[in-house]
Simulated assay, not measured.
Amino acid sequence: MKTLTLPFLLVALLISGCAKRNLTYFSDIEPNSNYSIAVREVSEIRIKPFDRVRITVNSPSTEANLLFNRGKVAENIETINGLEIRQESTDQNIYLVGKEGFIEFPILGQIKLQGLTLHEAREELKFLLKSQVKEPSVNLIITNFKVTVIGEVNRPSNFLVGSERINIFEAIGLAGDLTLYGKRENVLIMRDIEGVRNVYRVNLNNKDILNSPYYYLQQNDIIYVEPHGQKEKDAKNNSTLITVLSVASSVLVAIIFNYQNLFN
């Protein structure tokens, strides 16, 4: 009887050894209470090298509209097995921002867009177009605005963003939320700014994230959710548990076999 009891005691100890963790977002907000905070000024998205921008020009002149909306075909560069494969995009009115921050625009030639907000870029293009077209209006959007969510989430991937703004919780929602092992208190955001790669840490359990400068994401941001140390412990515990159950089943089979032999 003691032999049978020991494995079950070991299993109980393994289960009870799991650490208690905080899995609640904004857990420092008091239960059944409201919370409000003034929204800080949101940093606008700025155009970066290798962004793809769709530019549409409208004016009273049909001829001018046809001229400026034919678009320079963007070049798509993919690296496969160390080789650069260049393909032309069939999308019209899409311009690839080059490494130096310029696009090649019909008639106007090279225009530097790097570092401009979308509003500033629209106004710059309108100003330049006024020498060619009467009353021009310009629509400009980034077509390859994407964020990447990896680590302890249910659906790690990169996601194209259809608007000019996305916050960290929306991105995590696209990735199917964090797993039980995701470290909510220490999420990393990787962001390239003017050739410098920066890494920031945010705490999703704390309400201060709502007013953090990293609450809203920028194009090409990478969110990495670290695994909690408990995952490694559980993996070791599971291995130990399998071993214990294997030994216990062998002992049980031996006892049953011996029991049957006693009465045969």
Results as ranks from 00 to 15, higher is better:
K2A: 15
L4S: 12
A12W: 09
G17N: 11
S27P: 04
D28M: 10
I29C: 08
E30C: 07
N34G: 15
Y35D: 12
S36I: 08
I45F: 03
P49H: 04
P49D: 03
V57Y: 08
S59A: 13
S61L: 06
F68V: 02
N69K: 03
E75Q: 13
N76G: 05
E78W: 03
N93S: 14
N93I: 11
K99F: 11
E100G: 13
F105R: 02
L108Y: 02
L113Q: 11
R122K: 09
K126I: 10
L128F: 01
K130H: 05
Q132K: 09
E135Y: 08
L140C: 05
T143Q: 07
T143G: 01
V147H: 06
I150G: 02
I150S: 07
N154Q: 06
P156D: 09
L160W: 00
E164A: 10
R165L: 12
A171E: 04
G176C: 00
L178N: 01
L180E: 10
K183D: 02
N186S: 14
V187R: 09
L188N: 06
M190G: 03
M190K: 07
I193L: 11
E194Q: 15
E194G: 08
E194T: 13
V196A: 12
Y200K: 12
R201K: 15
R201A: 13
L204K: 08
L204W: 05
Y214S: 10
Y216K: 04
D221E: 04
I222M: 02
Y224I: 15
V225Y: 04
V225W: 03
H228P: 00
H228L: 09
D234G: 00
S239I: 13
S246D: 06
V251C: 14
A254G: 05
F257H: 06
N258R: 12
L262N: 10
